[in-house]
Nucleic acid binder design. Sequence first.
RNA 1: GCGGGGAUGGCCCAGUGGUACGGCGGCAGCCUGCUAAGCUGUUUCUCUAUGAGAGCGAGGGUUCGAAUCCCUCUCCCCGCGCCA
Length: 443
Amino acid sequence: MIDVKLLRETPDVFYENCRMRGFGKDELDRFFELDSTWRENLKAINDLKREKNEITRSIASAVKSGSSVNDQKTRVNEINGKIREHEERQGNVEKERERVLSLIPNLIHKDVVEGKGDDQNRFMRFWGNAQVHREDQEEFNLRTEGKGKFTSIGSRPISHVDLEESLGLVDVERAGKISGARFFYIKGRLMKLELALINYAIDFFSERAFTPVEPPYMMRYDPMSKATDIETFKESLYKIEGEDLYLISTSEHPIAAMLSDEILMPEELPIRVAGFSPCFRREAGAHGKDTKGIFRVHQFNKVEQFIFCKPEDSWDFLEELINNAEAIIQSLGLSYRVIDFCSGELSRLNARKYDLEVWFPAQGKFREVISASNNTDFQARSLNIRYRTKEGNRFIATLNSTGIAVQRILVAIMENFQSEDGKEIRIPEALIPYTGFDRITTP
RNA sequence: GCGGGGAUGGCCCAGUGGUACGGCGGCAGCCUGCUAAGCUGUUUCUCUAUGAGAGCGAGGGUUCGAAUCCCUCUCCCCGCGCCA
């Protein structure tokens, strides 16, 4: 949620912000209209309540001295009727005002490039030495602005979809039989590799001052709606029938909501959390995309970085998050590029977002594996997470970033670490202490 | 699932129908020959702000008036049952 006082004081800033994001100005117009009605009504209600309180107090003393209070009681009943009328109207106005307010997006950082569509996301840097098939070189150079280092390969690696089947590592067919499309059984050494990856990531972030946390996998409507936005509700979330519970689509949400309605001491900040959980996503808007294999699925595991901090520190922590993300991907030996999202591609909550995209040589594409966002005080305001300052209580800032999106990294390893004959997959050096084996071979 | 007890400001705690007591902590100031002690004030949210309104787990109800009485819900504690 945005700051209403700031919105009233500097409406132009918010109109410009909406324009840059490609949002309409209807919500802003509507908000100002509703807000002035709301404030007028509030004044009327408060005036009536003041009168009521005065009379009520006079009744209290009259009762003590034994004098009659019938007239005052009648008057209060009249006032109560008026208050009820006003409050009924105010209730409707307030509900609509809150709804419209929740649609107004966060203010973006001044360095975010104006644009719409992912073509206008800004390329920042490349790391690694990618295996690039001859036919993909144009795509590779375009996506790295010619700054990407690569080794040309003559034949394209086997797609993870075929490889996981031929090596007997994933069974999507039987998963389809019992759960439907976009589910999977992960088997054998790939399953052990998955656990290794999770343990590795938890250790990696623990060493960087993150506290590992496993959150609840289900949340109620109220905290969920405060931790995320309406788009996530529509497109991502599974609801539990007959209960006020939703399966989480990322550990970001229960971790953010963990400190809701709390006031923190400044010395407690920053709080770094490494969340681990399965993530459940309906993928409602993704028909036809990545329909095979385990790249885009309804259920996957993820280690997440989350930081609660003072607002003035949040931009430094966004860099920390992307640095950590790069360090862990580098340690796995995967080539990637980092991009800075343009204004039109940011979610309502984001003030700025970086994505890390790994090169997938079989697909011949960079694909998103990590997304690091600064939500400034937007999410914390909805969740009511504050910290104490000399000037009073202020909202903190929240940031989140993928640590390891486990299934996607498994796909990246399968595409980047397979032998030429497609009969085995090497295990990245850093993971061998966790797997206890150095390759996955034909069954 | 059943029975009993509970939820009060950042924290602890009092309060059985008349508008929230006290302590701790934080902040500001005063005093003091100075890492201490003492004294005073302050401490949440909202509004068109020298003022007013709201706020005692959440939402309803009764009443001129509710932290207090009634109903529904959530969570915590104790006991019983069930259980990986």
